[in-house]
């Protein structure tokens, strides 16, 4: 009995670890050329971080995507962080449209990708459907000390919207829903 309990605990622990160690570039590759190929569907100002987030989606899946359905298998969503333009005192500047003004300086590239079966490797308390995550630097190299627990826990707050904050919302607005 004691042995069974020990094995069970070890399995749970291993599953928990696997939940986060699977995430990263081994699964979610850097989408080379995304700025030319992908669809820029939104930008999100993040004034407290002096950042503007450029949101891209893979074009092959975007044409098939519907607000009422989970994103198609193979969907890739990218969040590319740009530093905002600031004035001499360090305050963010605004464009004529009232939005933060992005610079060309990219700080982080976050990628989430959905492949059938990927979620099976994660414990239920962690799983984000079949989505997985990776964190890249501007040169396309993986961020060495990337942590993904925050990705999984935060995106679980949108389980009812296929685990994303902006893309399904974009589709809903596009379809008038």
């Amino acid at each position: 009995m004691h042995k069974i309990v020990v094995i069970s605990l070890a399995s749970v622990f291993a599953a928990g670890l696997a939940g986060y160690t699977l995430a990263g570039p081994d699964r979610v590759a850097f989408p080379s050329g995304y700025t030319e190929r992908f669809v820029l569907y939104n930008t999100v100002d993040r004034p407290d971080r002096k950042t503007i987030r450029f949101m891209y989606v893979s074009p092959e899946t975007h044409t098939k995507a519907k607000a009422s359905e989970p994103a198609p298998d193979g969907t890739i969503l990218i969040m590319e962080d740009h530093r905002a333009k600031v004035d001499a005192s360090g305050g963010v500047q605004f464009g004529s449209d009232g939005r933060l003004v992005p610079t060309d300086q990219i700080t982080n590239i976050f990628v989430m990708e959905k492949r059938a079966g990927w979620g099976d490797a994660y414990p239920p308390a962690v799983r984000n459907g079949d989505w997985d995550y990776a964190h890249y630097l501007p040169d396309g190299k993986p961020k060495a000390d990337a942590k993904f627990d925050g990705c999984f826990s935060c995106h679980r707050n949108r389980a009812g919207r296929d685990f994303n904050f902006t893309y399904t919302k974009y589709l809903m607005d596009r379809e008038g829903k």
Binding site: Y41, N42, T43, V44, D45, R46, P47, D48, R49, R53, F165, T166, K169, Y170, D173
Partner: peptide
């Protein structure tokens, strides 16, 4: 507070 409406999208943290 987050708005994800295109043209207004902002995350206040």
């Amino acid at each position: 507070v987050l708005t994800a409406t295109v043209g207004f999208s902002t995350d206040l943290g």
